[in-house]
Write a protein that binds this DNA or RNA. Structure first.
Lengths: 157, 157
DNA sequence: ATTCCTGCAAAAACTTTGCACCATG
DNA sequence: CATGGTGCAAAGTTTTTGCAGGAAT
């Protein structure tokens, strides 16, 4: 099944219409899925391709995509939401590990998934059906650690 | 060391002045640390005790407290930030596991910490100094699972 | 006395909403 | 042709900022 078909199916399944706008937004998201686009960043890319689209549609579409499980809405504490497509033919739907550098704000992705044992405990002990998880490690990235060794002082956000 | 002393020390260490406002906000946070107060909720409690405090001070204080590692700023995807004190005499500074129910929005706390092995891998492999981590499991809580069994249909946010 | 902090109000930043028109099924 | 989606602009929320006065060291 192609990506486009996947979108069409998902929309139909949920009683939503297929529109040019939704297709365009989906395309752009797919093409930039590694970038964790914010709504505004996405919008900029969208109007390059389809200048007549409104930002409200972008927000409404992202909201819809999130509801039908097409995208994951990240919160990296930078004041806005960032979106990532959860593609069908992957286990991405369940793996979001990120390292957030407190100094430079860089977002580093992590591959490992050692969460399974934790999940099992939680599902049993709390009778909580886990749909997704996010793990964020806040700290200092290697580059900033190096820089720190040169300076070596406090309070310099 | 008392809680008040801890605040005083932490502020001095960072070259910040000790003020009534900061003390009050710290107190209220301590007394309601299980509630994950938002800035606005905190502000409501603060003006009950000290009516002259402004909301700007509340935001500025929370920001400061976060910078000096006194509070953790949570993001539970409910449109605002929620704050939690990281008390000195605890390992709380490193344990934030939460279950977020997609249906009712309930936030359930989890005690387990099986993250240590994952952390070791990350620290070594990415040379990333981990200061804190957050784990969020999104899913359906036990109550909502029960309700679902009665209804049993889709699209009802 | 100097520096930092506060309160107020205004502004900024991000997101949502109302409404008339248009496209999809 | 009925329903749902879009674009625009206006409004809503949460958070930040400028500035003059005030408190802490």
């Amino acid at each position: 099944m192609s990506d486009a078909d996947y979108l069409v199916n998902l929309l139909s399944e949920n009683g939503c219409k297929i529109t040019v706008q939704r297709n365009t937004i989906y395309e752009i998201l797919m093409e930039n899925n590694d970038k964790h686009l914010s709504a505004e960043e996405l919008y900029e890319l969208v109007i390059d391709r389809s200048p007549k689209i409104g930002i409200a549609t972008t927000y409404r579409t992202l909201q819809l995509f999130e509801e039908i499980g097409l995208v994951y809405k990240h919160n990296f504490d930078d004041g806005l939401s960032r979106y990532e497509i959860l593609s069908p033919n992957s286990n991405e739907i369940h793996q979001h590990h990120h390292l957030l550098c407190k100094k430079c704000g860089k977002i580093i992705e992590v591959k490992e998934d050692l969460m399974n044992s934790l999940e099992e405990i939680i599902e049993k002990q709390y009778n909580f059906e886990i749909l997704n998880h996010v793990v964020k490690f806040t700290g200092i990235c290697s580059q900033c650690r190096n820089k720190e060794n040169e300076n070596g002082n406090r309070k310099e956000t």
